[in-house]
Design a protein around this nucleic acid. Structure first.
Length: 472
RNA sequence: GGCCCUAUCGUCUAGUGGUAGGACGAUGCCCUCUCACGGCAUAAACAGGGGUCCGAUUCCCCUUGGGGCUACCA
């Protein structure tokens, strides 16, 4: 049988890391099994659902490369289908109208609690006659309740093994606020059946919804589905990363310069691990090695340092042109104007970037010479006169040779030979500071390569001036 | 409170009926003009108590810890 899975977010917030992880596991499972991955927007909650959140979810999934194989389905566009199915349940006496007000229910709940009884709906409206119902329907608001059968529901979770629930603890749950206002547990069951979903892979927070959905499936005579409940992603406080807070939206990570593949790689490792000890994985490798049997049972704490490291590894694995492209949104427009310098700057910093934002911070000195103090030019306690001598000597070496291949091999060798003779630090440090204006930076030869002859000589000139005025 | 899930270094995890391996992070050393990178090394865990067994981190039970759910949200 063809495997069909779905990611079914409700558009009540921006796409969140937990959601991405659920989508990813579904997608990997489908890809690995040669199945179909569906996207369903669960927007039955009209108050909380917003179009912009739906757009955010779809765009971000696209950015991640986790794309549905069939057109997106929206629950808000399927109200007729739910109505038909609700009517069917009512006609078959498997569901009934309930006219109890929230106040009544709350009172009932409190009374049960104080008597030490497990609180659940009393079933008061269940026995209303057809006439009573149609009379009341004219005047009072009503919800639709499902007649919960009392049984032990047990299912075999692909991750957790056998799980059991006693449905008599649930009471008759509300499955719709009206014929055209379905609620989650009901709508999910109808849609999963209609979309011929075979496996439901979702977060552990849904574990206790599963038996409710299973009894609904039985009531309809729908085929059963196989469940897998993923361990939750936890914050440093070990609490579920909640989408109620605006932090941890995927956009934040995107804007901070995390790569889609690094994010996916990080997320897949939260609760799953390939058979071998490899951790840096391409999406293709994730697909081929993915196995739901290897998914962890316990929640996983989100570890930002590991994300940084994975992002660093994925940046390194990228080729330079690709990285240049990715970096463009993260730098000032004028940086791109000199393509050669920009590309070379990317080249030398590729192995130092934790995220794409770092590039602007680390490389700004290349595009604009920073102001700096002359006192940082000399290496240790070298007298200024000597530093001037060294820099002057280096400058003359740089003036020789072919412009196109600057700095050419001979030049590099000459500088290194000179440095060897005079003391590496005594030559290389001042040269590097002259070129970068900073105490910490990439090496001087790399900087010559990025800056080119003209700019390098100008910067050395500035350094010589600074040193000169130090002497007076 | 009730129901359910869960438990290996700080974190992510591997693993087995014969006491634990990797990764991130941390620390130290090496490389080195600086910062990164890289290399090497060190510290760091089977929650506790009962069983079963010749022997349990591994199997069972209990406790404890952690988490989720307990909506006319999803």
């Amino acid at each position: 049988m063809e495997v069909r899975v779905r990611f079914a977010p409700s558009p009540t917030g921006f796409l969140h890391l937990g959601g991405v992880r659920t989508a990813l596991f579904n997608w990997l499972f489908a890809r690995h099994e040669g199945g179909t991955f569906l996207l369903r927007i669960e927007d039955t909650d009209k108050e909380r659902s917003e179009k912009r959140f739906e757009e955010d979810i779809v765009q971000n999934l696209e950015w991640l490369g986790v794309m549905p194989d069939e057109p997106i389905i929206r629950q808000s566009e399927r109200i007729d289908i739910y109505e038909k199915n609700l009517k069917k349940l009512i006609d078959e006496h498997k569901a009934y109208y309930c006219f109890c007000s929230s106040e009544e229910l709350e009172e009932e709940y409190r009374a049960q609690l104080s008597q030490g009884i497990i609180p659940k709906y009393s079933g008061k409206c269940k026995s209303l006659s057809a006439n009573e119902v149609s009379e009341k329907l004219k005047t009072s608001p009503a919800v639709i309740r499902f007649k919960m059968p009392e049984e032990i529901i047990s299912f075999n979770d692909m991750i957790r093994g056998k799980v059991e629930f006693d449905t008599k603890l649930f009471g008759d749950i509300i499955i719709a606020k009206g014929l055209r206002e379905p609620l989650y547990n009901f709508a999910v069951v109808v849609d999963d059946a209609e979309q011929r979903v075979t496996h439901v892979i979702r977060g552990e927070e849904h574990l206790s919804n599963t038996p409710k959905q299973m009894v609904l499936q039985e009531a309809f005579g729908f085929p059963s589905v196989t469940y897998a409940h993923l361990p939750l992603i936890l914050g440093a406080d070990k609490k579920k990363l909640s989408k109620r807070f605006l932090t941890n939206s995927l956009n934040d990570y995107k804007n901070q310069g995390y790569l889609p593949n690094a994010l996916l790689n990080f997320l897949v490792l939260l609760g799953w691990h390939p058979k071998e000890d490899r951790e840096v994985l391409t999406t293709l490798e994730m697909i081929s090695e993915f196995s739901i049997k290897r998914v962890q049972k316990a929640g996983a704490v989100f570890n930002p340092e590991k994300l940084d490291w994975l992002n660093f590894m994925h940046i390194r694995a990228m080729d330079v042109d690709e990285l240049v492209k990715n970096l463009i949104p993260f730098v000032p427009a004028e940086w791109k104007q000199n393509e050669k310098i920009f590309r070379r700057a990317v080249e030398i910093s590729k192995d130092r970037l934790k995220n794409l934002c770092d590039f602007q911070k680390d490389s700004s000195f290349i595009f604009m010479m920073p102001e700096y103090d002359a006192s940082i030019i000399p290496w240790k306690n070298t007298p200024a006169e000597r530093v001037i001598e060294h820099l002057t000597q280096v400058r003359s070496l740089l003036e020789k040779g072919d412009e196109a291949h600057f700095p050419d091999e001979t030049m590099k060798n000459d500088i290194l030979a000179f440095a060897e003779k005079q003391g590496r630090g005594d030559v290389l440090w001042p040269l590097r500071v002259a070129l970068s204006g900073k105490g910490n930076s990439p090496g001087p030869i790399e900087l010559l390569y990025v800056l080119g002859r003209k700019e390098s000589l100008e910067r050395i000139e500035i350094a010589l001036h600074k040193l000169g005025s130090m002497l007076q």
